[in-house]
Design a protein around this nucleic acid. Structure first.
Lengths: 113, 113
DNA sequence: ATATCATATCGATACTCTTCGAATCATCGA
DNA sequence: TCGATGATTCGAAGAGTATCGATATGATAT
């Protein structure tokens, strides 16, 4: 039985926010990289597996080659859209995909689009 | 047997173009209105059913209350993204959803996102 | 406490998008 | 062919986004 843990009505405004977040090549790329953290990022300093906590901002920044402030702001945008979840472990902020909400988005998109 | 008529590989660039087209409240709204032309727009002057040809720009413009040039440009954006199809009947340009491509987009989004 | 490291926020600048009105193009009817 | 009507294209003003460097916050270790 798949109980819906996270609840949020996916309003039209929120739908728009998701599309805006995805309408940028860098953010879209990062989201896709995060599908397979081990394949796309170096392992983090002894921290548990990346599927748990995610990938820290510095690694994403290294791979993108953009300013740190830029990356931070992009990740915040993705988080506001509900596409990623941030977890702070010590001084590192890790981001991982919110698979549940992404799945719900792609699944229900046909009904609302 | 569902044969794929329209072929286009849905490249990452095209995916981005779709998201950009959808990342605007007006364009998103029009696309949703076009799901049910009869319910959302007045019937056009004797022309066949709106599912065939679609809705003409003037009707969309009336409903939106934006300048005609603006509406025209929005519809062109939606068309470039492959979300609508335009059909010229006399002096009227009609737009309807490209249901096949929209369906493919929503169906395959889970794989690519 | 303080120095240091990872992130986040702020302020500026360049670029893109939104939206308009005016000019142009296309089609129909007289 | 001419004038009217619908649509597209063009050029401009304002709003929003991308991106940076500088500064601020939060955490760790000394």
């Amino acid at each position: 039985m798949a109980t819906r843990t996270t609840s949020s009505p996916d309003t039209s405004a929120h739908l728009l926010e998701i599309f805006k977040a995805l309408a940028n090549p860098v953010r879209l790329q990062v989201l896709q990289w995060l599908r397979d953290p081990e394949a796309n990022f170096p392992v983090h300093h002894g921290i548990a597996d990346p599927h748990e906590v995610g990938v820290c901002v510095s690694h994403i920044q290294d791979k993108l080659g953009l300013a740190q402030s830029t990356v931070s702001s992009y990740m915040a945008t993705l988080e506001r859209a509900g596409l990623v979840i941030s977890t702070r472990v010590g001084k590192w902020t890790h981001y991982r995909r919110d698979e549940e909400r992404i799945a719900r988005f792609t699944a229900e998109l046909g009904d609302v689009l």
